[in-house]
Structure formats: C-alpha cells, structure tokens
Design a protein around this nucleic acid. Structure first.
Lengths: 245, 245
DNA sequence: CGCCTCATTGACTAATCTCAAATGGAGTGG
DNA sequence: CCACTCCATTTGAGATTAGTCAATGAGGCG
C-alpha cells in the first residue's frame, strides 16, 4: 500500500525536492482517499464558484482559465498528474479561475479541513505543498514574461519545453518527447495566439527540425537547439526545495 | 504610536479585509522596526540573489521584473505603498525576479525569523498576509490574461485602472485619478508593448476623453466608459477576505 | 547655456489576425 | 465497405495591429 502511494504522481514530484518521512507519506495517503472521475470537457470548477474542496490530479490532463467579458478565453495553466486543482479556491473564498478536463481525468478530492489536518500532522509535507504552490506561481510569472517579451514561436517552444520538464518529474516524458492531448486551439488560447498562427508556427518549427507536434505527440527533434531558441532556463522549475521554518 | 501604525499603508490595506486586534497591530509594528531608504533606479533585489530579508514598502513606487536572455525586460508588477517586496524570496531560497525602485523609496526591512515570529504571535495577521500574497498572485494572473487576450489600449486602460483601485485602498487615489511616477517606457515594459506604441495608445484614449496620462498624473476623464472599455472587473481585487483556519 | 531623459510624431516594416476554403482522419449509420 | 458528418488541421490572401527607425519637442537641472 505504502509502495503504491510513493508512486502517486504528487508523491513522486514532492519527493524530488523534499525527503518525505513515513508520517508524511501517510498524511499524503489520507488526501488520496476520495478518488473521483470526471469526463473531458465538463467544467470541474467554475469562475466565481465556491467549492469547499480541491483536487490532486492523478490521471489525465486539465487546464485552468479565465474568460473575459469580450468573449476571449485565456488559459492560465495546463494541469498534469501530480498537480493541484483549485487549491487557492479552498484557501480563499472563491476562485477567480475555471478548471476543465481535457481528457477524462481521475482526481483525489479533499476538503479544507483535510488540508488543515495535514498541515498539523505533517508540517514537512505542508512546507512541501506550500513550495509546490509557489512553484506554480513562478510558472505563471514565466508565462507572463513569455507573453510579453517572446514572439509566437519562442513562446510555443517554451510552453512545450516546460510541459516536458514537468512531465518528466512525474515519469510521463523523457528527453525525446511525450504524449500530448492538446489541440492547436487549446495551445492558441494558452499562448494568446490564433489557432491558425499556432499551426503555422508549429509547421515552421517542424521544418526547421526543432520539434514535432503531431498526432497527439510532442517530439523534441533537436532539444539543445530548441532550449536555446526558446530561451528556456528551467531555473524557475527545479530550484532548490523550500526552506524549513 | 498605535495611531500612527494604524495609518501605515499595509495596516490600512489589511484592515479593509480583516479586522485587526491590538495584538495584530503590535506584531505589525514589530515588522516596521527597521526603516530604510533606497535611491531610485538602484536594484533592491537581483534575479537569483539570495536575501534573508524582505520589505514592506512604506513610501514611493517600485517594480518587479525579469530580464530575458534575448535582452527584453518584462515588468511583472508595480509596487505601491503597503505592498511586500521580495516576500517569496525569503520563503523560498531564491527569487526569480528583480526589484527596482522607481522613485526614492522608504521600506521596512524584516527577516525571515521576524516573519515566523509574527506568524506565531498573531495568527490572524499571518492569515491576512497569506491572503495578501494570494491577492498578488491573482493580479499576476489577471495581468497574464490581459497580455494574452486584450489589445494594447484595453491592456493599458486595465493596468491604470487596477493601479487606481490599489492606490485607493491605501488612500493615494480617488475616483478622479492619482499621481503616477511611471514613464511610458516602464508602462511599455509592463504591457509588453513598445514605448512608441504606448504613446500612441495614450494619445488615442486622451482624445476619446477616456483618460489622461500626463505630467505625472493619471486622470480618469470618463471612469464608467473606461471600466467598460477595459473590461475591468475588480472582483479579483476586492473579493472577500481570507478564510480563518 | 548645454545636456540629459522622456514624450511625440511620421513613414515604413514586420508580426499576427481574420476570413475563407480545402484537406484529412475518426466515428457512425446504412 | 461505403457515404456522410464532425472536427481538427492546413493553407492562402488580404487586413490590422504593433514594432522599428528616425527626427523633433519639451522640460529639468548642473
């Protein structure tokens, strides 16, 4: 049983940065009690909704987004196994973002009280989770930076590289590439581009031998060149673990 | 003395959302012990630097930013009195952003240990500060959304409206406008635009009677029209206070 | 005054969007 | 197996937005 839990994507991710004690792992188990499934495309959390629970994504992909009054949609982040869904919405009264599954997903639901309990029982785990939240914020900042000061191709490459690095942490990618359920429309809404332009950019990069995004797979055809091209640093992803209070 | 502290921008901001007890105010006092001054334009915190302290901005403006390998600079957030500077960098080992004063500033420096002490002595204040941090993150998300799905004019209007709302919280603005030390270059680096284009956009909005950005002042010439034009919601700014664990 | 930096404007260029249409693959019913 | 539909992808052409380069003003300050 413990064996299985060490293998959950979240445990795997956290263990990369903090060594988890048996107590921590046990507390993590508790958070995984209520496993639920959701269909693709059906809102899991809606902008402004008040939900007393949050989720740990165990299987499948999702995304968080905001819709504007003018009709546009901006994807804030893609969520992969091991990520929290709606963590902020239980710490604070309401969420300002919506979350929608891309594929059918499985996620473990936990309540606000479960979280506070965990914080009390396994402080080290609490720290690790706070760190994970901070890492998420660093990713949003990096996304913002890319949006403002990288062109369409650099941005696209950067997002796909970042996803690769994150997936590798949970064992879902290697240095050659990964399975990717994103449509070009989703990519466009994340990158602040039109789907048409995303398509052209992907073709260019494929023809330049940098990366291939096709048939549900991302292949890094020239990883070094791509990292260079995108100005991908990764420092904001795998910096040292959290300080222990 | 207590009177004065209730008047600090941070106390004023937090008090809008959480009622602070005398103990909380006292703890806040402690954080304000070490007041320091910094000249405009001199880096306060540098990308990647490890600093054991953070600041509460008491007077003047600053901004946080990242520089890219390609030379571009993206401003992540403007900092006004009552804001934290470098809070993340003491919770986590290193900061991925730099901070620079725009005007001469005064800020209260506090150490990591001061913060943990405060958390222990005044839990309610700790919650309030965590909430403030979360609000900052919501602003970054909104900034990201604007970058991706609002055009140059909407983005500009949105940022200036948001600054107005934040300044009002600390008594530095009213519904007509506020004093604003930003140059068009800074605005451009925050908006992901060229300074030249910012200039044109500002002129357009001035000619349309929406807002005037001139001589260090922002005037909302048609607040309602402007809010409408920018799709400014404000929900992400003044949502309810934090939940009390 | 002379020298800054910031703001402003014009002319031209480059990036990206929009509209429109064609292609292709996966599933579905006959 | 075929015809058909649905959707995502792909491509082209022209319109729009924003960027670049270059020059001129305008205010502040030693």
């Amino acid at each position: 049983m413990q064996m299985l839990l060490t293998d959950s994507p979240l445990a795997r991710k956290l263990a990369t940065f903090v060594s988890l004690s048996p107590v921590d792992l046990l507390a993590l188990t508790d958070l995984h009690r209520r496993r639920r499934k959701f269909a693709a495309g059906r809102n899991l959390l809606h902008q402004g909704e008040i939900l007393p629970s949050a989720f740990i994504l165990a299987h499948g992909w999702a995304f968080s987004y905001k819709v504007l009054t003018n009709g546009g949609r901006q994807i804030v982040d893609f969520k992969i196994p091991g990520d929290f869904l709606g963590l902020r919405s239980i710490l604070f009264r309401s969420s300002d973002q919506s979350i929608e599954p891309i594929t059918p997903i499985e996620a473990s639901e936990f309540l606000q009280s479960d979280l506070f309990e965990t914080f009390a029982n396994a402080p080290r785990l609490a720290t690790a989770m706070l760190w994970a939240a901070s890492r998420d914020e660093a990713m949003v900042v990096e996304h913002l930076v890319g949006m403002g000061r990288r062109n369409a191709a650099e941005r696209t490459a950067h997002v796909l590289l970042e996803l690769g690095a994150r997936l590798r942490l949970v064992g879902l990618a290697d240095s050659h590439g990964y399975a990717c359920p994103l449509s070009q429309y989703l990519l466009a809404d994340a990158l602040g581009l039109s789907a048409v332009h995303v398509n052209r950019v992907l073709r260019d990069m494929r023809e330049q031998g940098l990366l291939t995004f096709q048939h549900g797979k991302v292949s890094f055809d020239n990883l070094k060149g791509l990292v260079d091209f995108a100005g991908f640093d990764m420092g904001y992803l795998d910096h040292d673990g959290p300080l222990q209070p």
